[in-house]
Amino acid sequence: MSILVNHLDHIYNPGTVFEVKALSDVSFSVDEGEYIGLVGHTGSGKSTLAAHLNGLMKPTGGGIYYNGVDIASEGYNLKELRGHIGLVFQYPEHQLFEEDVFTDVCFGPKNLGLSRTEVEMRAYDALKAVGIDDDHFYVSPFDLSGGEKRRVAIAGVLAMKPEVLILDEPCAGLDPAGRDEILAVADELHDSLGITIILISHSMDDLARHVKRILVMNDGKLVMDGTAREVFSHREELEAMGLAVPEVTAVLADLKKAGIPVRDDLITVEEAAKEILRVFGR
């Protein structure tokens, strides 16, 4: 599995006053088994990029290659692509429509043309994977809580057994427990099933804790691409873009400025706690 994004451009409503350059000259590649975070200010083009990776929009320039084949080429089987690259939209719970949870999750695999048993097995596995109990399977999706709806919607995409899962702000509007649950699901999918994950998020702390590599978008351009530690070492640049570094990284940097000899390239609370204890000799 490999994805190559090559000089991708996207302009909305070209040639009118409503013209917006949402993506300009974006290039990067994704290898099998990566766990990538995608950040950027609101309107920087993250969702537009995600829609392109899923073949939902046609690039106005450049291209995307999945396993070496241009997905915008004539006759490319986009339905099959969408089975391989799963996209969970921002607020995915707004796409639920069936009478009960289980049938809704079946929608995706059914569209892939699988047999009924296969469809139901996948739906069952997906619902289990996101932690929905059997007694919720046959209630209306509209009767669930926000967090449960979100998990059912994610299951709807998971049931298609994608090799790559793109999650567009899966934690927006959830409480801390709900957020941790969703991210734990993502971790589990990555660690035990080897699914490649692209996580779009505004929370630097979440990214620091979960992803290995971070892509930073600014005004439609890809401005940084590196390991989480590398990216978070550019505090000023990130802040100039309206972003930030994880809170603990900022704390460490300020401690260093105040004359305490701590390392300031640590990004998670656990690492930082250990470092501070080390410096104070405990």
Binding site: R82, F89, P92, H94, Q95, F107, N111, L112, V157, M160
Partner: peptide
């Protein structure tokens, strides 16, 4: 538009 895209992402035709 968004809902159409979301359902297409789930393979709807």
């Amino acid at each position: 538009d968004r809902i159409i895209k979301a359902q297409q992402a789930r393979g709807a035709d």
